Computed example of a mutant assay.
Amino acid sequence: MKKLALAVIPDRYTDLFTETVGKTVCGKQILFSGRGTASSALLRHLGIGSTRKTVIGFLSCEEAIEAVCRMCEREARQHKDCGGILCTVSAENTMAKKSAHTLMCIIVNSGYGETVMEAARKAGAPGGTIIDARGTGTEQDMDFFGIRISPEKEVILIASETSAASDISDAVKKLPCFDAPGSGMICTLPADSFFHLGTAPVQE
């Protein structure tokens, strides 16, 4: 049975990663540009904490996952920054599953991604990836000189231990940026499997 897989890797290794996945998966991949979040207050202060990331989604099988992990381990021996995370989510009966890890997807208005990550990290999140996005045609659309503009959004992906997911979610929900109706949403899914890509655990 195939599962939905999401991988977060350094931007420079996108081609290598997609080529490896393409050799073992029959199907398409979808790529998003994102940025990692700094775990150091000093790096954030200096403005150098964020790193460019690629988020890759694809339908996976065990063979593909094992091949990707082997590739990242091999590359990490030569390039210490070839690391990231990969988790899979099953589309079947996810509510009944118990998993050691949880994938959190948080959607918020643009500009609040770092605020969300700061609250999430204080509640136990190991890190996260922010993706720029936009809303679709809803009543929240704005008129600007007669042109309909969809609100800009940010999507925050956090893979955490399930034991910490509830605390992270509660901390994020209390943020003022969620006070207004329709200002964002939080979705959590149990991860069937979770891997650190590379030779050592790397913050995403």
Rank of each mutant, 00 (worst) to 15 (best):
L4M: 14
L6A: 12
Y13D: 04
Y13K: 07
L16K: 11
L16W: 06
T20D: 15
K23T: 14
V25C: 14
G27T: 06
K28R: 14
F32I: 04
S33C: 12
S33W: 12
G34W: 02
S40M: 04
S40H: 07
L42R: 12
G47Q: 06
S50Y: 09
L59F: 11
E63G: 01
A64W: 09
E66C: 10
A67N: 13
R70Q: 04
A76Q: 10
H79T: 05
G84L: 07
V89T: 07
V89S: 07
S90A: 13
A91W: 01
N93S: 12
A96H: 12
K97Y: 01
T102R: 01
L103C: 01
C105K: 03
V108T: 15
G111F: 05
V116C: 01
A123K: 07
A123M: 07
G124A: 15
T129E: 02
I130G: 00
I131L: 13
R134T: 08
R134G: 04
E139T: 11
D143A: 09
F144N: 08
I147V: 14
R148L: 14
S150T: 01
E154K: 07
V155T: 10
V155P: 03
A164S: 15
A164Q: 12
S169A: 13
K174T: 02
K174L: 00
P176C: 07
C177N: 06
P181H: 03
I186R: 02
C187S: 13
T188P: 06
L189M: 13
D192A: 05
H196A: 03
G198N: 13
A200S: 03
A200P: 00
